[in-house]
Simulated assay, not measured.
Amino acid sequence: MMQQFYPAVPHTYRFELNKDFNFSAAHFIPSKEAGKCQVMHGHTYFVNVTVGGNELDPSGFLIDFKLLKEAVHKRYDHSVLNDHPEFKNDFPTTERLAEQIWTSIQSLLTTRNNKPVCLQVIVRETPTSYVVYRPNREDFQ
């Protein structure tokens, strides 16, 4: 896999974890402004998740990398994004996908006793286009 460098998110946590993974999915954006993207098409999405925290779990992890991948990969790989309930009222743009991935990851993290937080999600739709999603501070409460 090609090494990617992404924008860093400023924070004061002792630990920062980054996980890269990819999945394949199709979508369409039913809006005139979307041009060619109005028609169903697919992407191999590349995702980077940044997690921060001050405490490790009993195994010495902020969170197991595998759990982060499973939270997203199982949900979206080889699917049509438009068919997912979280996109019922929103078009599955890369921006919305990044936001939904953050929501899934943060929900998982809130179940952890060491309380890590998802600081940012980056979703790369094509080799030249990606979105960075960073939550507002109040999103952690």
Rank of each mutant, 00 (worst) to 15 (best):
R134V: 12
K69L: 07
F140I: 04
H41D: 08
E86Q: 14
R124Q: 15
A71H: 04
Q100D: 07
N136H: 12
I101A: 02
V39F: 12
H84P: 04
A25I: 09
P85N: 09
Q106N: 13
H27Y: 12
N89F: 11
L109D: 04
N114I: 07
Q4P: 01
I63A: 01
P7G: 10
G52W: 04
F140M: 08
E70V: 10
Y6V: 14
H27Q: 09
F5P: 01
T110A: 07
V49A: 06
C118I: 07
L81M: 13
R14S: 13
N18C: 10
L56N: 06
M2D: 12
H84T: 02
T50Y: 01
F61A: 03
F28A: 08
A71D: 04
L119F: 01
V117N: 12
T12F: 03
R134P: 00
N54C: 08
Y133M: 03
W102T: 03
D64M: 09
E125V: 05
E125C: 10
R96D: 02
D20F: 04
V51S: 00
Q38M: 14
E125I: 03
R112F: 07
F15P: 02
Q3H: 13
Y13T: 14
E33A: 15
I101Y: 01
Y76H: 07
L81D: 01
E95K: 08
F91A: 14
L68T: 00
R96N: 15
T128W: 01
H78D: 10
S107N: 15
H84F: 12
K19Q: 13
Y130F: 15
M1T: 11
Q141A: 09
Y133D: 05
H43R: 07
P135W: 08
A34Y: 07
A98L: 06
